[in-house]
Design a protein around this nucleic acid. Structure first.
Lengths: 329, 329
DNA sequence: TTGTAAGCGTTATCAT
DNA sequence: ATGATAACGCTTACAA
């Protein structure tokens, strides 16, 4: 049968409590004792029983990841990172898909909480900026970390300076000679777009900004609107890669060559950006890393081991084949 | 504080054990008693404590999903289905990424088992056909269900007749006039490719079949090999959508128009198949549904509620824009 | 620094 | 058909 804490205690010649202290990294254990316990545990291949730990400790050792449905590859990357951090700290992970737009989505999260009693939550966009949800979590006194929140109200988690990234991207195409640059927005990367224009001394044209919603379809719709203009843009900045793919699709349908006749760039560096022709110029965010950091910060906050922060991670421009010199007019 | 089984028992005027019987659908409870207990539980908003249940019952009420890394969107769909089934049966879900090729991947699964003690596992391709892993699971007497296993050795889970699907796809392009059809294989969809040729009375040419590994890169490599032939194919059947995208990429790089000069088709109907130009002809498999079914069958086997099976689900050809009439020679 | 004893909320066992 | 009581393996509170 499986070794219990009692067995380890006996083998190490100490009490159960001491073994417990070692495994929970509590203070007040002599170094020598600790080593003896660790050796005994290894010998017996001891693994703490999670259920017993939860029951006695009145906590679940569970972290819950809430996501709406941005891109599957994005979420899978985040999951990888979160899983890595959880593993290391002996926490489990529960997944919770949430329908952001839906009525009752906050209640669905409350159900999750009362059923699984997670020790903390991790929010991904767009849930990070769901005011109703966040307010309720505060009321319920449930800990949470955020990934890429628009506003980090002094919370914990991981962010990236999307505005600066967007502005850098703009500088890239401006350097290629583009002056009329369209934007299919999903709201917040817009600020960087405007910064980029301003820094280049280009007057923003409101007609060049159309609403999007981070989907392939809105990329097609946005591209149509922009390309049908009397004076169409020579470059289009899509708010994410899926949208950029929609632009690419519409361009191909019109027989427009990219990047010779139209430059296109996205955001996120999802795998699809490498798997389309031409491959997509985009901004890479270290999603896996951000998942890992958010989970680490959350667990640190739960365990009270050291202070938890909002960590800013670096971005990276990925210049590929969908951007090129502006065409002569 | 949260209601316990004891509170419900008191409120219903019965013993704890009777409440336990009701919640676990055990026999030997009078209908009237059952109703009284259920009413009391509702009044008190009682939810069984999972940790206590696991500890006392010596089972985890946990199902674990093992995946390597086919496409993220595929796994996300499967997860959705599995989650839905788990929710319904009050089981939790644990995720376990496994490096199929890696040394020690079986040990990593054993670690998962000894740590989380899941009541059952769900295997996705290519782990479904990992002989070493499956053998070990049998030895350890660990229950598992499979999704899209090549060989269903009398196991439980969900499958789809990939061979027939591949053959149907072949019939489609043969009807379009193609005779030289290449295949970038990842092993098992090959049988359907050969069936399709045979049914059309076309002699298979071994040179037209190249090895792939279900990746974008192998699509590029395979396409190069096939298109560099003296007598190149007019159509290429890629073993999955990612590979097909690689073919599309290479075709674009060579200035080959699809489908006018080359037809391409894939397998899986991942979102990318709609987001490339031209959109991809492919086979749709109901991944979400398969996840749900596999989890249901697994849980049925665990709980012993009725017999569990290997369920065959229907596929569907998605004819899009990447296949067209064969070019004149 | 280390140990003892009393739970944690449920299910299993054995009665009735 | 129902109930009393002892586990289950760990942590907490308190003691030494």
């Amino acid at each position: 049968m499986r070794a219990r804490i009692e067995d380890v205690a006996a083998a190490a010649g100490v009490s159960m409590k001491t073994v417990s202290r070692v495994f929970n990294r509590e203070p007040n254990v002599r170094e020598e004792t600790r080593l003896r316990v660790e050796e005994a545990a290894r010998q017996l291949n001891y693994r703490p029983n999670t259920s017993a730990r939860s029951l006695a400790g009145r906590r679940s050792y569970l972290v819950s990841l809430l996501y709406d449905n941005p891109s599957p590859s994005y979420i899978m990357e985040v999951i990888e990172g979160v899983l890595a951090a959880c593993e290391q700290s002996h926490y489990g992970l529960t997944l919770r898909p949430v329908d952001f737009g839906q009525r009752g989505h906050v209640e669905s999260v409350e159900t999750l909480i009362s059923q699984y009693r997670p020790d903390g939550l991790i929010l991904t966009p767009p849930l990070t900026d769901d005011a109703a949800l966040v307010r309720r979590l505060r009321e319920l006194n449930v800990r949470y970390a955020t990934i890429s929140a628009k506003r980090d109200g002094g919370g914990i988690g991981a962010t990236l300076d999307e505005r600066a990234a967007a502005a850098d991207m703009m500088a890239h195409v401006v350097a290629l000679g583009h002056r009329r640059i369209g934007h299919i927005a999903g709201a917040w990367r817009l600020a960087g777009y405007l910064d980029g224009l301003r820094q280049a001394g280009i007057e923003p044209d409101p007609d060049l900004v159309v609403e999007g919603e981070f989907s392939f379809e809105s990329g097609i719709a946005g591209a149509r609107q922009l390309l049908d203009m009397a004076d169409p843009p020579t470059a289009i900045f899509a708010a994410n890669d899926d949208t950029a793919c929609g632009v690419l699709y519409e361009a191909a349908a019109r027989g427009l060559r990219v990047p010779e006749q139209l430059s296109v760039f996205g955001f996120d560096d999802t795998p699809i950006s490498r798997q389309v022709w031409p491959s997509l110029t985009t901004v890479r965010q270290p999603s896996r890393e951000m998942g890992r950091i958010a989970a680490q910060q959350l667990i640190a906050a739960i365990d009270g081991h050291g202070p938890a922060h909002m960590v800013r991670v670096p971005y990276q421009l990925q210049i590929r084949h969908s951007t090129g010199p502006a065409p002569r007019r």
